[in-house]
């Protein structure tokens, strides 16, 4: 396995933005309602996240260190604004704009990707993160859908089951730490 493949797989598995680094955990816990409906939304969010990562990594190298937070903030807000522009994540959630649930992902992913010294590895990391996010989003959507129609007591449905599922997936991904 060459270095790029390793970084890509690390970004998808060991540094999965949902199960391992938590950056996309909120989005995945709140947004997907079913596996079928989740796919397209996941791809849109992942593409926006990937582009914001690339833009963030490229811009961070061109600005002084003190201005780096502004770059992450700007690319994160632009990615969120683009999603809104395309009609995604409109409306409110618990009285707040729904777009807030993806901000940790949009601002955090460029920050994490920029920790890589080279642009090529940062691209591989971002691509891995985006693919890992899509997988997690669809999986949790499927879990929520099957739990909703199950005969389990209402106390066990939705949030607890989503969190325990995330725990199991993070345990599974921990196994890749030693490859």
């Amino acid at each position: 396995m060459n270095e790029m493949t390793g970084v890509f797989l690390d970004g998808m598995l060991i540094e999965n933005p949902v199960f391992m680094t938590f950056l996309g955990a909120l989005a995945v816990a709140v947004l997907p309602q079913s596996s079928r409906g989740a796919g397209l939304m996941a791809v849109r969010i992942a593409v926006a996240s990937f582009i914001s990562s690339l833009a963030g990594v490229a811009l961070v190298t061109a600005v002084p260190e003190a201005l780096e937070p502004l770059v992450y903030l700007a690319v994160g807000l632009l990615a969120a604004g683009s999603l809104l522009r395309f009609g995604e994540l409109q409306g409110e959630w618990l009285g707040l704009p729904k777009i807030l649930v993806v901000l940790p992902l949009f601002i955090g992913t460029p920050y994490v990707a920029s920790l890589h010294q080279e642009l090529a590895t940062a691209v591989a990391q971002s691509a891995g993160n985006s693919l890992g996010f899509v997988g997690a989003f669809v999986l949790i959507g499927a879990v929520r859908e099957s739990v909703r129609i199950s005969e389990a007591r209402s106390e066990f449905k939705t949030t607890p089951v989503v969190l325990f599922t995330m725990a199991i997936f993070s345990l599974a991904l921990t196994g890749f730490l030693f490859w």
Partner: peptide, 13 residues
């Protein structure tokens, strides 16, 4: 991470 999710899920449940 598994511990974080487990504790949080337990708190909600």
């Amino acid at each position: 991470p598994i511990g974080a999710f487990l504790l949080l899920g337990t708190a909600v449940l």
